[in-house]
Simulated scan of single mutants.
Amino acid sequence: MKNLGSWIGGGAIGGACGLALSISIGVVKHYEGTELESYPDPVGIPTICTGHTGPTVELHQTKTAEECEALLAGDLGKAFDAIDRNVAPEINATMPPTRRAALASWIFNVGQGAFRDSTLLERLNAGRVRDACNQLTRWVYAKGRKLAGLVKRRSTERELCLMGLE
Rank of each mutant, 00 (worst) to 15 (best):
M1R: 09
M1C: 11
K2Q: 07
N3D: 15
N3V: 01
N3F: 08
N3M: 01
L4F: 08
G5L: 15
S6F: 08
W7V: 01
G9P: 03
G10V: 12
G10D: 07
G14S: 04
G15M: 04
G15V: 00
G18R: 06
L19S: 08
L19M: 11
L21N: 10
S22C: 12
S22I: 12
S24P: 08
V28P: 03
V28W: 11
K29E: 15
H30Y: 15
H30S: 09
Y31K: 03
Y31I: 13
Y31T: 11
T34H: 00
E35Q: 12
L36T: 13
E37G: 00
Y39V: 00
P40W: 13
P42E: 04
V43D: 09
G44Y: 12
I45H: 07
I45P: 01
P46C: 09
P46E: 12
C49L: 04
T50R: 14
G51S: 04
H52S: 08
H52Y: 07
G54R: 14
G54C: 14
P55Q: 14
V57I: 15
E58V: 06
L59T: 00
L59C: 08
L59N: 02
H60Q: 12
Q61C: 06
Q61E: 15
K63C: 12
K63P: 00
T64S: 14
A65L: 08
A65K: 12
E67F: 04
A70M: 07
L71Q: 13
L71N: 06
G74W: 05
G74N: 15
G74Q: 07
D75M: 06
D75W: 10
G77D: 10
A79S: 11
A79M: 06
D81M: 00
I83E: 13
R85K: 15
V87A: 13
V87C: 11
I91A: 02
I91Y: 03
I91N: 05
I91H: 05
A93C: 04
M95L: 13
M95V: 01
T98N: 04
T98W: 10
T98I: 02
A101G: 00
A101N: 07
A102N: 13
L103H: 10
A104W: 12
S105M: 06
I107K: 07
V110N: 05
G113P: 01
G113V: 10
A114E: 07
T119N: 11
L120R: 05
L120S: 01
L124R: 09
A126D: 11
G127V: 10
G127P: 08
G127T: 06
G127F: 07
D131G: 09
D131A: 14
D131L: 08
C133E: 13
N134H: 14
Q135T: 06
R138D: 11
R138L: 13
W139S: 10
Y141S: 02
A142V: 03
A142Y: 05
A142E: 02
K146C: 05
K146V: 09
L147N: 15
L147A: 09
V151D: 05
K152T: 04
R153F: 03
T156R: 08
E157V: 03
E159Y: 03
E159M: 15
L162I: 14
G164W: 02
L165N: 05
L165G: 09
L165M: 15
L165Q: 14
